[in-house]
Computed example of a mutant assay.
Amino acid sequence: MNEAKNLPDLRQHLSTLDAAAGLRYLAEAFPGGVTFSSSLGKEDQVITHLIAAENLPIHIFSLDTGRLFPETLDLLARTTARYSSPIEVIYPPQEPLERWVRTNGINGFYESIEKRKGCCALRKVEGLKRGLAGKQVWITGLRAEQSENRASMPLLEWDSNFHLFKYNPLLHWTDADVDAFIEKEAVPYNPLHDKGYPSIGCAPCTRAIQPGEDSRAGRWWWESSHKECGLHVK
């Protein structure tokens, strides 16, 4: 059931289910094969809550890039304590990252898109590969409202880069939907969200946005385009 040819049937079935039911269905259909990569953003916190509330056998992992905000690391600790559920923390490969820093400098990612992508590849993509290894379904917190690129993403897709299904259970949730759920269920979230940071990544690569700006405008803010890091490739 884990081959791309099953995509239309799976997508059709999941379209009839809400987020919690969709997660439950996939956990039952792919026992031991479902994993959730959490960046600890609001959407991801909602999904963690749904997994914990249903006690679903879904593996959860998060990437510690080595450049995260202190608030993000604190949220990781609070989340683990709140849900009494282990979240695997994956770190960048030490030696390749050290070589990259020696060659490009600690903040070399500011110099070009190519260098920034190289930094993201080591700090994020390599860890993601390890987190997804051996899995059949990858759960994400992507939402259509987040960016123009993500607006065209389907509820379920076949990720040809990592060779597994990719499920976006909150794809059609709005900002208001996410905030309402967090308030209703008292879900822990990053206090930086209340300071103008709708999308939070590494500290040197994230700034607060101004009124009217796209929610991804604060990510890699010195670049004029390509507001993705390589984790989600269409």
Rank of each mutant, 00 (worst) to 15 (best):
A144K: 10
K117M: 15
D214S: 12
G212D: 05
L231Y: 01
L156Y: 02
Q146F: 09
K184T: 14
G127C: 02
W222G: 01
D44N: 11
D159R: 04
K5G: 11
P154D: 04
G33I: 07
E54M: 11
R150N: 10
I60M: 00
R219H: 03
I106R: 14
K234Y: 14
I90Y: 02
E71V: 02
A81H: 11
I200F: 03
S225Y: 06
P96I: 05
Y189I: 05
K129V: 08
P8V: 10
N2A: 15
D64W: 01
W100A: 09
R219K: 11
V187M: 00
M153F: 15
A121Q: 14
C229T: 09
K5W: 13
N104Q: 12
L128D: 04
T35M: 11
S39Y: 00
W221T: 13
A20D: 11
S112G: 07
A180W: 14
E114I: 10
H232L: 08
A77R: 01
G218S: 05
W221D: 12
G201L: 04
S215K: 12
Q146G: 02
L192E: 03
S199Q: 06
G230Y: 07
T174E: 09
L50E: 04
R11M: 11
Y189G: 01
G108V: 00
G41H: 01
N190V: 03
E145P: 07
L170V: 07
T65A: 04
R143Y: 10
G118I: 02
V46K: 00
P96R: 09
R216H: 09
E88W: 03
R11K: 14
C120A: 13
G32P: 13
N161D: 15
A180T: 14
A19K: 04
P31M: 10
Q146A: 03
R78C: 10
D214F: 13
L97F: 15
A133L: 12
N6F: 14
V101P: 02
E183A: 14
A176Q: 12
L164Q: 10
K184S: 14
L7R: 09
S85W: 07
S39Q: 05
F109A: 05
